[in-house]
Design a protein around this nucleic acid. Structure first.
Lengths: 251, 251
DNA sequence: CGGCGGTTTGATCGGAGTCAACCATGGTGG
DNA sequence: CCACCATGGTTGACTCCGATCAAACCGCCG
């Protein structure tokens, strides 16, 4: 369940990182790339269900997700869980902990993962010698903040159907931007439990809500995953304009 | 209503900033302080109700709030509003816009404000020459992210009473940390409309919810403001452990 | 074969929204 | 001076969205 396999050493050199080649990532200077390459100490493979980082924990690593899906969440003392955001390839994992010092949320794998492992103590060096990368990290933090803003708007002011539509459209867009959409269908590796805990709804009501979206031919729910049929329709149902796309950095 | 008075020039030199003297802010190197001082171009005074920054706007300034209260919000196309967070003295205003390039939320003054105005185009210089300050900015962004996480947990998984209790306790703690609590009472300059738009509730239900907190002697609601009587009680009602206090930077 | 996680559906309950008054305050202009 | 109105707060009646309870189904795996 929460077993983390030991690092199996470097497999993907940063210079030939398949992610970096994608159009949504900005080009790096060779010296930046060299630093990132040296910053990376290895790779970590984790299986579905693994808890990568736990709330309250202090000895935190800093990772970049290379492949797979994960999610961030917090819980109340009595066990109620709220999913805060999802993590896709290219996302930094554990940044908050690295910056503030203590992990305030947990991270769990939704699929088998491969992560690049970084040396947290060299973060100061990064800030000192690579202002461009430092800015990138701040950029990523600001981007995460923006996503949380949107999610907050959703929880506070959208009803169940709108929320579900927003969430699925949002995940679709994010997945598409890292090349995870074959044709125009996309399978999200999540259960209705995850949807419920993201939207702040009960599982039962989530099921009925997703049914409505399915009846409107916007999605199809498969076992343990969700197929997106009509993103435009979802965005319209959520009154959502869509993300603003920028070239993003990849640490 | 949305009038912004022109900058009335420098009044408070950074070296003698009254905020900086407070125990919750970390000490700065003299060269850092010198840069911040040169980074600041002047001060801006805004009256209650002023919209400082508007969603979608691109020509964004970067400020630090010197005194007063403000809040960040987003709206759906049909007008529903969600307040995302509040801003107190020492908070950066407009960082997201400076980093990403376009403002994704609006900012409005809850009281008369004084802001330090910074030159956004010198942000690159800050990152290049003052890694410590660059780290501070990232720290502040991570901190904001943490607050949003908490707020998200609240909207998703707490009921009305718990949400209200959490919000008021949260604002109390933040205000206290910048010296805004005389004795143990504190007046929050917000209307029930603000509370409603923060908690994702209707005004009517917000009123009834605050009434419950008042009946339990946790708060007292005055006209256009809220007096906190029992923070511990509020935190308990919200199942909230309280913030983790760290020395914070002041740009 | 049984059990379990994930999904589905129906019945009922309750928390929060909506509608509709009403009051207190304070600022406005005749 | 007062009539007028806008803003913010308060309260009650009724409605409805989403929670809770309950039961069953399905595919999978030990």
């Amino acid at each position: 369940m929460s077993l983390v396999l030991p690092s199996s050493g470097r497999r993907v050199p940063c210079e030939q990182c398949p992610l970096r080649a994608m159009p949504s990532f900005r080009a790096f200077e060779s010296q930046e790339l060299r630093f990132v390459s040296s910053f990376k100490t290895g790779e970590l493979v984790a299986e579905t269900g693994t808890t990568l980082l736990a709330e309250g924990n202090n000895s935190v690593h800093l990772y970049t997700l290379l492949s797979g899906w994960a999610f961030r969440y917090k819980t109340l003392p009595d066990g109620r869980r709220q999913i805060l955001n999802y993590m896709l390839p290219g996302d930094l994992v554990g940044l908050q902990g690295s910056i503030i010092g203590e992990m305030q949320h947990s991270v769990e794998a939704l699929s088998p993962l491969v992560l690049c492992v970084f040396q947290r103590n060299r973060l100061t060096e990064l800030f000192s010698n690579h202002p461009g990368l430092a800015f990138d990290i701040t950029w990523l933090a600001a981007q995460e903040e923006r996503m949380l803003d949107d999610h907050l708007l959703s929880l506070g002011r959208r009803n169940a159907v709108e929320r579900a539509a927003y969430l699925i459209a949002f995940l679709y867009q994010r997945a598409a931007s890292v090349g995870l959409s074959g044709a125009n269908a996309l399978y999200l590796p999540i259960t209705q439990m995850h949807v419920a805990d993201t939207l702040g709804l009960s599982i039962v009501h989530t099921n009925k809500t997703l049914r409505k979206l399915a009846d409107r031919k916007l999605i199809r729910w498969l076992d343990r995953s969700c197929e997106v049929l009509d993103v435009e329709g979802l965005m319209q149902a959520a009154e959502w304009e869509g993300p603003l796309e920028r070239k993003r950095p990849l640490i």
